[in-house]
Nucleic acid binder design. Structure first.
Lengths: 209, 209
DNA sequence: GTCTATAATTTGATAGAC
DNA sequence: GTCTATCAAATTATAGAC
């Protein structure tokens, strides 16, 4: 019987609380730095109940990591699969990606960090969940533009690296950039907002012939 | 009396062994993930002796972190302080930085990761050791080039971010890029080698008017 | 489902012999 | 300076009552 009169929270709500708490703690401190006690505290429950919902730390972590990765990778895949023109892809990617990461600024560092810990394992897990991105279309598209004479010769691989680097890296290196140039939180946020237009403009200029 | 006949290694050698082992383990697993036992094993000694040389884990870590940071930050500062032309700076920075990171590919992720754990603490420690980089000269130099009409208008901050991003990020995201495009270790290494020229060319094209 | 209490394990650190 | 043995604290995980 469903206990709809119960005062305390029930399963799905508690589970959601735990996942939200775990996300916060894992992303802030990583797999090793995170403490089950901290996650329980953050979720407003105790450790025993935490283990009731998730058998062990590793299992909980994997779910958080996969969710985090799922917020980042499909948007990269978008570059590869969409039917837009090259310039449109670059523009919409910067716009969308920076918007997402502004709201989750620690996601990229978290994901890349854990990926590097055990690349083989995580990539296997990731690619079996979301079908692996296939960059062939994107690479061919660049070659075609070069052939048509619309852009100067650029290496597709390096263009891809440049695009992703300029979009993602500043969030991972925020403390460094803030210190270098003396930006407060608000100024940094504004700079990232500018980059939605700045990066595409930069790339387009670099590709002009 | 110096025991130069002793078969076993003596102090300075052991200390060096420990530091090398600690560097390896800390960079691979971070402050929290690293185990003193692993460091001892890697150095070929036991935990007790490890604590004889370094009072505690934190002190050992700090030394490793500072050494790692010292390999990366002064080379960035080079951009700011040198008297070369803007183009020369960009070219020599890419050349030198990629060379260093090719030999220590996990350093950037390690340093940025630990920096994000406690930005205030680490930045204070860092800046009191090596005098803080001062980007004013570099920023002014860009403004001057714009004014002289040598390059199109570019935001100095964004140019700096673009340069550092394109140079450093691919090493941090190596598993991702390798998977995306299907590169083995050797092919990735070659791609990074190409970037020594590719990045400056890309930037210079983007700045042409 | 949720709690208290506690077991089991890991791990940083120390004591003391050689 | 290096080791064996051990402690003390932290942390994951479980037992069992409600």
């Amino acid at each position: 019987m469903v206990n709809f009169l119960k005062a305390t929270k029930i399963d799905k709500t508690t589970e959601a609380d735990i996942l939200a708490a775990a996300k916060k703690v894992f992303i802030a401190r990583g797999m090793y730095g995170a403490r089950m006690q901290d996650i329980a505290d953050e979720a407003g429950i105790n450790k025993a109940l935490l283990h009731y919902y998730f058998k062990n730390k590793e299992q909980l972590f994997e779910q958080i990591f996969m969710d985090a990765a799922a917020q980042l990778f499909p948007r990269i895949n978008m570059i590869f699969t969409s039917d837009n023109s090259l310039f449109e892809k670059i523009e919409s990617f910067c716009e969308e990606y920076i918007t997402v990461v502004q709201e989750n600024p620690y996601l990229p560092l978290f994901v890349l960090n854990e990926m590097n810990r055990d690349p083989v394992y995580f990539i296997k897990k990731l690619w079996q969940k979301h079908s692996g991105p296939d960059p062939r279309k994107f690479l061919e598209q660049i070659e075609a533009e070069v052939k048509k004479g619309n852009i100067r010769h650029v290496s597709p691989l390096h263009l891809l690296m440049n695009l992703l680097s300029m979009t993602i890296f500043p969030f991972m290196a925020r403390p460094m950039f803030q210190q270098f140039v003396g930006l407060d939180e608000m100024q940094f946020r504004m700079a990232m907002e500018q980059r939605k237009k700045e990066i595409p403009a930069f790339i387009i200029n670099a590709m002009k012939r």
